[in-house]
Write a protein that binds this DNA or RNA. Structure first.
Length: 161
DNA sequence: GCCAACGTTGGC
DNA sequence: GCCAACGTTGGC
């Protein structure tokens, strides 16, 4: 199993929204590096759900990948802000996965708290100017964040993942 | 292939 | 609202 971090603006779609809808297409990613990470995801992978452009920013919950990458519909939708006129159905440029909620973290882990974790000193998220909306997370990093959030991988996977 | 201009992200 | 950092675009 691999671990990831997904950014979302809570004003647009926050972790509580994921719990409300039950599952969600992770579409609209328009960065090649982030897209490549989406394509590496497997069903069952866990992802930290990060609230960006929030006060405070931080990790609110954990999601699970429930479907691997397929072409992102929005790239073909002329009415969508994510429409990409240079993409073709023959060779789609952008991908999306589907995610479902696992659990809200008992303690919201703020960006400040993330910065204070020694295990995360090399993590791209806490480095200046990072803009990637999909990031890989190592098992050590995952454990550290979950511990700071008041849970653990064992606890999360015991609930039937 | 270079690189200036531009648009976007996201913390503050 | 500001602005630094970054990715992309497009003229040359």
């Amino acid at each position: 199993m691999r671990y990831w971090l997904l950014k979302s603006e809570p004003d647009v779609f926050g972790y509580p929204d994921l719990e409300r809808v039950g599952r969600e297409e992770w579409n609209g990613v328009r960065n090649y590096q982030a897209r490549n990470f989406l394509r590496e995801m497997n069903v069952g992978d866990l992802a930290l759900f990060y609230h960006s452009n929030a006060s405070p920013p931080g990790v609110a919950g954990v999601a699970r990948v429930v479907r691997t990458a397929v072409p992102d519909d929005l790239q073909f939708d002329e009415t969508s802000p994510y429409f990409d006129p240079r993409s073709s159905r023959h060779d789609p440029r952008w991908s999306m996965v589907q995610v479902a909620p696992v659990a809200a973290l008992p303690t919201f882990v703020t960006l400040d708290a993330l910065r204070s974790l020694p295990e995360l000193s090399d993590f791209a998220l806490v480095r200046r100017g990072n803009r990637l909306s999909v990031l890989p997370v190592t098992p050590t990093q995952m454990q550290a964040v979950l511990r700071a959030g008041g849970t653990s991988i064992d606890e999360l996977t015991a609930v039937g993942v």
